[in-house]
């Protein structure tokens, strides 16, 4: 008996920067035009949650906070095998910083009830802070394993390996716990045909979709709006500067045979000092 009954995965929809769509010529992002995707680290978190379900049982709930289109990533999670999805969507959440986001999400966790394991990605690709996971854990008074790259559950405890500088660390953690996932150790199984069909059905049948996906507001989870959004955020972006271009000093090597180009580097720069003898 693993004793696992409920697994939560916290995911976020982010702009897809690998696509040129929505990328302005100066490198800034037009979020309205940009393609959207599931945050890559959250994909690993989803893999981890589904791995637990497969190996040890339990029910997987995916939770996200965002505007209505964020429902797309909940459908994606369900297509991969999550059992249900919750979207916290509320205008009063606009401009939340990490602390306000963590406050709102921890209220959702309390609303959803007891969770044995909470997974989330190490960080998002649009915020890069890695703060929301640990801030939720603090609010819920849970132990946490950050930078997790592998784990198993033995005798009701989480045995996890986390990345540390120049190596890794093995820890044993009581449940419930919050885990931030850094690596794609447990490969996400491809969307099954069943999963793909289910999504088609859900997109056709609103009533059926509502059985799988629940949209909730701050009022549903009894969150104090004063602690959310801009009001609940202790930080603000006060000013932005364009980053100045440096240099223009680059010596370009082009338009010759590859051999000649490479020779200009291997022979003409100080890299030869470091060649292994």
């Amino acid at each position: 008996m693993s004793g696992i009954s409920d697994i939560l995965v916290l995911i976020k929809q982010v702009p897809d920067t690998s696509s040129k769509a929505g990328l302005n010529p100066d490198g800034t992002i037009d979020r309205a035009k940009a393609k959207r995707m599931l945050n890559p680290f959250d994909r690993y978190a989803l893999q981890a949650a589904l791995h637990v379900k497969k190996m040890y049982g339990g029910r997987v709930t995916a939770l996200t906070m965002g505007p209505p289109p964020a429902v797309e990533i909940l459908l994606e999670a369900i297509a991969h095998g999550a059992d249900q999805g919750y979207l916290l969507s509320d205008r009063r959440l606009a401009a939340s910083d990490t602390l306000a986001t963590a406050y709102a999400l921890h209220k959702c966790v309390l609303y959803l009830g007891k969770m044995d394991l909470i997974f989330t990605g190490l960080q998002t690709t649009d915020g890069d802070t890695a703060q929301v996971g640990p801030q939720i854990a603090e609010r819920l008074d849970l132990p946490q394993v950050t930078y997790c790259e592998d784990f198993s559950i033995e005798e009701g405890k989480l045995h996890a390996r986390r990345i540390v500088e120049g190596g890794h660390q093995d820890v044993i953690c009581n449940l419930p716990a919050l885990v931030t996932v850094a690596n794609a150790y447990h490969q996400l199984e491809y969307k099954t045909l069943r999963g793909a069909r289910l999504i088609q059905e859900l997109n056709r049948d609103e009533a059926l979709k509502n059985q799988y996906i629940h949209t909730i507001t701050l009022d549903d989870v009894s969150a104090d709006p004063e602690l959310c959004g801009l009001k609940g955020s202790p930080t603000i972006v006060a000013h932005t500067d364009k980053v100045g271009q440096i240099g223009g000093q680059c010596v370009m090597h082009q338009g010759k045979s590859i051999e000649a180009l490479v020779k200009e580097i291997t022979g003409g720069t100080q890299i030869k000092e470091f060649v292994r003898q």
């Binding site: 990490t98 602390l99 640990p134 801030q135 202790p234």
Partner: peptide
């Protein structure tokens, strides 16, 4: 890996900006 694990816990404890 230590600072990014610890700082958000302290910030959330004091509900301060990080």
């Amino acid at each position: 890996t230590t600072g990014r694990d610890l700082a958000p816990r302290i910030a959330a404890h004091f509900t301060t900006g990080l």
